[in-house]
Amino acid sequence: MRKNAVVPYAIIAVLGVLTVVIISFVGINQRADIQQAQDGGGEQTEQTQEGETAGGDADAVYQANCAACHGADLSGGAGPELTQVGSQYSADEIADIVQNGIGAMPAQSQVAGEELSALSEWLSEQQ
């Protein structure tokens, strides 16, 4: 009678292991798809940003490149708050910080040209 009692547990264990293996393979495939979508999505975002900033929309550049660390409202988060960054740095200094990084902040080389000018001017006005 004990052998029969063990069989259901063995079946459940085998089914559990098979389920984990199947989910792992599905996850690996989804991971590749997500990575590919992010790579393709990044290009679309950059194109959209260039189009938006051609009109001088520094807020759109900030939201796309800075808000994740510095907060959507400049209030800070992983990075320091920027509500009064203009009282500490000039537009040129801000542009240099964005391009080259400072402290724990990495360089944001994807922000360049007209976008960089618009962003640094806008941030220098935050006082």
Rank of each mutant, 00 (worst) to 15 (best):
A37Q: 13
M105K: 09
Q126L: 12
G56F: 00
A104S: 14
S109F: 03
A32C: 05
E50F: 02
A5R: 13
G79A: 13
S120Y: 01
E114V: 05
I12Q: 03
T83D: 11
C69G: 07
I28V: 11
G76P: 11
S87K: 13
I28G: 06
Q84L: 11
G86Q: 08
V20N: 01
D59F: 03
Q49S: 09
A37P: 04
A10Y: 06
I94D: 02
G86D: 09
K3F: 15
A10R: 13
L74C: 04
L119D: 03
Q88N: 12
A112F: 04
Q88I: 11
A54S: 05
L74D: 06
Q44P: 02
M105Q: 12
V111D: 01
W122H: 10
V26Y: 09
T48C: 04
I22A: 12
S109C: 01
E93C: 02
P106G: 01
C66W: 00
Y9S: 13
Q127K: 10
T45H: 05
Q127N: 12
Q36T: 14
K3E: 15
S24A: 13
D59S: 09
D33R: 14
A112W: 01
A72R: 13
Q127V: 07
T45N: 06
A107R: 02
G71L: 06
Q110F: 01
I12D: 01
Q44N: 14
W122I: 04
D57W: 02
Q99T: 15
P80D: 04
Q84S: 09
D92S: 15
L18N: 00
M105I: 04
S90P: 00
A78Y: 09
Q36S: 14
V21W: 05
E50C: 03
A104M: 10
L82R: 13
T83H: 07
N29F: 10
S120L: 00
N65G: 14
S90I: 07
G86K: 10
K3G: 15
D73H: 05
E43S: 15
P8K: 03
L119M: 05
E50I: 08
V17L: 12
V7T: 05
A54Y: 03
Q99E: 15
V20D: 01
S75F: 00
